[in-house]
Computed example of a mutant assay.
Amino acid sequence: SLRTEFVLFASQDGANIRSLCRHYGISPATGYKWLKRRAEEGVSGLQDRSRAPHHSPNRSPDDITDLLRMAHARHERW
């Protein structure tokens, strides 16, 4: 993938990280993030990650959501 290719080039001695970021069309923050993940987690650190929040304090409880879904199934026009 392009991430792996970027990290391989950026990991070489004397590599210009910002120039490589421009070449690959990514921000320097993203480039450095990928390099850090590769160093900490190996190749698996370059995989896509979920963008879902880890915590949603205002989320409705599951039992209320289930009740709303049942009501919607019974009365689809509501």
Rank of each mutant, 00 (worst) to 15 (best):
S1Y: 03
S1G: 13
S1R: 08
L2F: 03
L2C: 02
R3K: 14
R3F: 02
T4H: 05
E5G: 01
E5V: 04
V7P: 00
L8H: 05
A10K: 00
A10L: 01
S11H: 00
S11F: 00
Q12S: 12
D13L: 07
N16G: 01
I17M: 03
R18H: 06
S19Q: 10
S19E: 13
S19R: 06
S19I: 03
L20E: 04
R22N: 09
H23A: 07
H23V: 07
H23E: 10
I26V: 15
I26G: 00
S27M: 08
S27R: 14
S27C: 08
S27T: 15
P28N: 06
P28A: 04
P28C: 01
T30W: 02
T30E: 04
T30V: 06
Y32N: 06
K33V: 04
K33N: 12
W34T: 02
W34E: 03
W34K: 03
L35D: 01
L35R: 05
L35K: 03
K36T: 12
R38T: 03
R38H: 14
E41L: 12
G42C: 02
G42R: 01
G42V: 01
V43N: 08
V43P: 04
S44A: 14
S44F: 01
S44L: 08
G45W: 03
G45L: 05
L46R: 04
L46I: 05
Q47P: 01
Q47Y: 11
D48C: 04
R49Q: 14
R49K: 15
R49Y: 06
R49F: 04
R51S: 13
R51Y: 07
A52K: 14
A52F: 06
P53Q: 09
P53L: 03
H55M: 10
S56T: 14
S56K: 15
P57Q: 06
P57A: 02
N58M: 10
N58V: 11
N58T: 15
R59I: 08
D62K: 15
D63N: 11
D63C: 07
D63Y: 15
I64L: 15
T65M: 07
D66W: 07
D66V: 11
D66G: 02
R69I: 12
M70A: 14
M70H: 12
A71V: 11
H72Q: 12
H72C: 13
A73K: 15
A73C: 11
R74E: 11
R74H: 11
R74W: 11
H75C: 09
H75R: 09
H75E: 05
R77A: 13
R77M: 08
W78N: 10
W78C: 09
